[in-house]
Design a protein around this nucleic acid. Sequence first.
DNA 1: CTGAAAGCGCTTACAG
DNA 2: CTGAAAGCGCTTACAG
Lengths: 345, 345
Amino acid sequence: MDKPKPRTFRVTSFDVAAEAGVSQSTVSRALAGDPVVSEATRLRVAEAAQRLNYYVDNNAARLRTGKTGTLAVVVICRPDEDRKDLNPFTYALLGSICAAASARGFETLVSFQDGPANFSGRYEEQRKADGLIVIGTTQNEAAWDYYRDLAQSGMHWVCWGSPYDELEWIRSDNHEGARLATGHLIERGCGKIACIASLDSLQRQFQERYDGYADRMERAGLEPWLVEIEDGLSREEQGRRAAQALLASGRPCDGIFAVCDEIALGTLRELTEGGVKVPQQIALIGFDGIRASANAMPPLSTVQPDFAAAGAMMVDKLLAGIAGESHEQRRVPVTLLVRESTRHG
Amino acid sequence: MDKPKPRTFRVTSFDVAAEAGVSQSTVSRALAGDPVVSEATRLRVAEAAQRLNYYVDNNAARLRTGKTGTLAVVVICRPDEDRKDLNPFTYALLGSICAAASARGFETLVSFQDGPANFSGRYEEQRKADGLIVIGTTQNEAAWDYYRDLAQSGMHWVCWGSPYDELEWIRSDNHEGARLATGHLIERGCGKIACIASLDSLQRQFQERYDGYADRMERAGLEPWLVEIEDGLSREEQGRRAAQALLASGRPCDGIFAVCDEIALGTLRELTEGGVKVPQQIALIGFDGIRASANAMPPLSTVQPDFAAAGAMMVDKLLAGIAGESHEQRRVPVTLLVRESTRHG
DNA sequence: CTGAAAGCGCTTACAG
DNA sequence: CTGAAAGCGCTTACAG
């Protein structure tokens, strides 16, 4: 048999107290930066702690205070989707949320959830987090139903991508972004502008973007032209099919606004492979500002939300909720990013 | 003044005990699935817990057991890099790690770190996690130095992307992948094959890939041809510059192996914009299998590591280390992905 | 198979 | 400004 593992002794605040010649409570106060502790004592304690390589046991502190200093972040995926194939927008948002949380002194407990076997949002009840941020694909209805039900319990949370308007959401300024994109095409000289979108009531963001497009078209005296995407395909494939349908219709077209970059990339490939020159024959613009849009051939014009602001806004809204304060801001500002795909010949 | 917030009472195992008519210890055992508890009791307790909407307080359990059931994942970024611009390979790896941890019953505490103000890897000392996984850019030397020093303290950890060979790393099977890529170009008929790479001693992965390339070239009686990337640029820009240098050299070339997809994408754009037809004049292949490689024009051939295996291997190695077991596997298997960029005219 | 009790390592009233 | 003591809510020997 193996030798029994030598019990590893943990350095506690009592050890530091002995080392510094003060009481354990003073150690706790000194290390927490309690201003009531005299500077001399604080220093003596800090040095003792360093000598002993002491760190506060987070579990004990959390148990005592009831606060976790942690935010849970749930990323909703398509069922059985490879993590590699997750929408890059979602990854960027995740990164920005973690950065914002960290800047405010919170840790982030991240989990990817794709099906009922996986759904688990009881972070507050289990005292694993003080609140919850849910982001990810709108298309996983089961997931959103699960979280909508959970929300009834009065948990603290904020989401991005929810198909339901009544939840605590943060979104891009979709109307404004779509107006910018459409206006850009119009100013560039396009008059026959199609919008590749979905009016599916679950796709709130796409609907909002279509509305912004239609709005701007009508303001210019132009007729909105909707090319609907098909359900149940990858975004890229949706973009390809929509482009096929558009070309097959024979209707003249000189500009396309696709409601997300991934759809736009599919559209771009289909157009290019079909011999249509972008932007000379058809100008194309997307929405989201994902990294891959810059690498497309030609580079894709797009509307980009302020990612840093997105993460910050979600975290701030959540923290406000936890503190019992109100927080009205829900729209992340967007910018027009003009690249080759809409530039003048 | 506001009314004082009503103290929210927490349901504890004592409440469940009263509800089920058993002792608190029995509640704990029953809910933990201890087989010593009779089935009838277990059921009664489970029902009582559900009625009261009871969940075990994770902090108390963790304090008592000394285990956190959590793995920390640190993503090393370039200083001040926008989270949106993080290498998509890293995001994919992060997703696969979280999935693997979750499948093994562990939570993941994720943080993005880019500079000394940010470095913080004392997760075990603070009892925030049982071990640590570090991934991210090789280029942040300060970060790797920090973690290399920390590792001296005997913490449990595994990393991906470290410039240092002596650490506990997991990597793609870079030699094999590079041989596959190079062999594919050769079989396709290429004879003048350049490799865009870096032999910088810190870029272990790139070096390994170059070695695999050179190996395969020599086996075919061909002369290796290294085009070095410049330091301190984005990967895409490195790829562009390398392509410029290659074309400017005037040396005939019919195939390029770029040691990562992001470099390859830059190379592809530079070639295309310079009027060089890919793959008709020059065939091009990358490495990493990032999502954007599929969206390039033409779609980029590449070598893809098994992402799911990568996350699983990292988590398994870490858990083995925590359990005091050994775990030898460190190379993630790779597959050749043939797309348009290397297809026959 | 079940219960009474100890103790994980802190934070924070309370007292001085 | 500092200390003695209580208690956060569990898990797990120990006893029966």
